[in-house]
């Protein structure tokens, strides 16, 4: 067992039930089958969330992934407290729950032999929200791509900016996009994979700025929240509103790729990078 597989084993949360209840079609699927199918419902093709480490295992060549900037973690710089308690306590609880220290894992590795720098967001950690630590890691990984001339792939899964960090969080949109802007200037490819869900400030910054924007079936991708929009226009929105399929139709993403095909798809488009 390589060190990284071991790390994945350690970080993988233990499955609590033998049966998985599909959030979309409500069918009960045998846990082992669910997992073997990469957390995708065999009945309705619903793509459930997976952890960053599961995605790394799925996409990268065995033993090729090296984590970078893993020591970066959030701080409660505003002493933010809401009704349910302090941000400081939330950080600790989320670290414990997820086994990771920020809402993104960054590093470099190989996809079918193609070297890339990467950032993989993890929805388990504070809803994948964009905090200062998240922004720092995404920028640092972009800078790594810049320095070594590697294509940069960011996998987003996020509810948006992290309210508990106030405008510090908002500014991470500018910070991460500054990294993307440098890659653009040096003609280094940036591939954005928008996963379920990618919303708010993450969609309105790096996640939409891919030279290629890719998604998984059914992923919710949008700027404003569905309820906010319904309140604004005073009517119910269509079911497919803000889905990957809707964005494809409106010209904002290049392709919707099944989870099981993602590794082959990415390797194939990387093979066209002729530099």
């Amino acid at each position: 067992m390589s060190w990284y597989t071991k790390a994945i084993e350690e970080k993988k949360p233990h499955r609590k039930t033998l049966w998985v209840h599909c959030k979309k079609c409500k069918s009960h699927i045998w846990g082992e089958e669910w997992e073997k199918n990469l957390n995708v419902c065999p009945n309705c093709n619903y793509h459930d969330t997976i952890t960053s480490w599961q995605r790394i295992e799925l996409l990268f060549d065995k033993g090729s992934f090296h984590e970078l900037f893993e020591n970066i973690s959030p701080v409660d710089s505003l002493n933010f407290t809401d009704l349910k308690g302090s941000y400081k306590d939330k950080i600790q609880a989320n670290k414990k729950k997820s086994g990771i220290s920020e809402s993104v894992i960054t590093g470099h590795g190989k996809i079918k032999g193609f070297n890339v720098a990467t950032a993989i967001m993890d929805f388990r950690f504070l809803g994948g929200s964009l905090g200062s630590g998240t922004g720092e890691k995404i920028l640092q990984a972009a800078n790594f791509a810049y320095d070594y001339g590697l294509p940069y792939i960011v996998f987003s899964a996020s509810g948006g900016a992290r309210m508990q960090e106030g405008v510090l969080s908002l500014m991470q949109m500018a910070k991460t996009c500054a990294g993307v802007a440098r890659l653009n200037k040096k003609n280094i490819p940036f591939i954005s994979v928008l996963l379920n869900p990618t919303t708010g400030g993450v969609t309105a910054s790096y996640a939409m700025m891919g030279d290629l924007n890719i998604s998984e079936p059914g992923a919710v991708i949008g700027f404003a929240g569905r309820r906010v929009i319904e309140q604004t226009i005073g009517e119910k929105l269509p079911d497919d509103f803000q889905t990957a399929e809707y964005l494809l139709e409106h010209g904002f993403i290049d392709s919707i790729v099944q989870r099981k095909d993602m590794r082959d798809y990415l390797a194939n488009v990387l093979s066209y990078y002729n530099r």
Partner: peptide, 22 residues
């Protein structure tokens, strides 16, 4: 936060400005 704004790429337009302003 409106339907037509989402339809025409509210997120993309803001993202592009933030990126290109750099």
């Amino acid at each position: 936060p409106g339907l037509e704004a989402e339809e025409r790429g509210q997120a993309e337009s803001i993202a592009r400005n933030i990126t290109e302003m750099a």
